[in-house]
Amino acid sequence: MRRILAVLLIAATTASAAAAGQSGKPRYFVKAWLQKADKTFEHTTSWCGPDQHCLVPIGEDMIELRELSGSSYYLRFISASSEDTPCCVFRNGSREARLESEYPRVATLYYRPEIWGGRGVTKFGRLIIVVEDLY
């Protein structure tokens, strides 16, 4: 399953990261695929510098990476959607998750529970992401 996800992610993210407007010396290469619950998707590639904090646009949304290291990082997804449907949290209700670097990781995202009056969890989508340390 991991190999299939990795192949899909690499194939879908062939756009040049230079086009994302990143400047400076790259330290990390980020590839991400967002599969929304409505079956639409976005994908991106980008560079992150050595400063341990990086914002990566994906469609109209944003991926925030913090405390980047060769082995792990914190991930937060920031949705551009209106305040009527603010997004997103992970299954445990947290706004961020700590993930390991180098291999594709799947982070399932959910709408915040208070939006639905506490009537259960509604899935926003899945974010498949790889952060590669270039050093």
Rank of each mutant, 00 (worst) to 15 (best):
Y135W: 10
A15L: 12
H53T: 15
I128Y: 15
R98T: 14
T85E: 01
I115F: 14
N92K: 08
S71R: 02
S94M: 01
G24N: 04
L75E: 02
S16G: 12
G93R: 01
F29S: 11
P86H: 08
P50H: 04
R91H: 00
R3P: 08
L68V: 09
A19Y: 14
M1K: 13
A12S: 12
A17S: 15
G59Q: 08
S101G: 08
F90I: 02
L5H: 13
E100S: 14
S94K: 02
V106W: 06
R3K: 09
I10K: 13
V131L: 03
V131N: 00
L8M: 09
L134I: 02
V131P: 00
L127D: 03
R119H: 15
P104S: 07
R66I: 00
W116Y: 15
Y135N: 06
L65P: 03
D51R: 07
I129R: 00
A11G: 14
L5Q: 01
S81Q: 03
V121Y: 12
I115G: 14
L9T: 10
L99C: 03
S94C: 05
G120W: 04
K123V: 15
E102G: 13
A11C: 10
E67I: 08
M1C: 10
R105K: 13
A80I: 04
S16K: 06
F77I: 01
A17M: 05
V131H: 00
T14A: 15
D51W: 09
T14P: 05
T85G: 00
L55C: 06
I129C: 04
V130N: 07
D51E: 10
G24M: 09
K36G: 07
E132S: 11
C87E: 01
I63V: 13
E83F: 06
K39H: 13
D84M: 07
G70M: 00
A19E: 10
G120A: 05
A20L: 15
Y103H: 08
R98L: 12
T108Q: 15
T45V: 13
Y135K: 08
R76T: 06
F41L: 04
C87M: 01
H43N: 11
V130Y: 00
E132P: 00
E96Q: 10
D51A: 15
T13K: 09
C54V: 02
G21S: 09
L68H: 03
L75R: 03
E132F: 03
E96Y: 15
A97G: 07
G93Q: 02
I4F: 15
G21D: 09
P50C: 06
R2D: 11
A97S: 11
T122S: 12
I58S: 05
T13F: 12
V56T: 08
H53Q: 11
L109M: 07
V7I: 11
P86L: 02
L34M: 14
R76G: 00
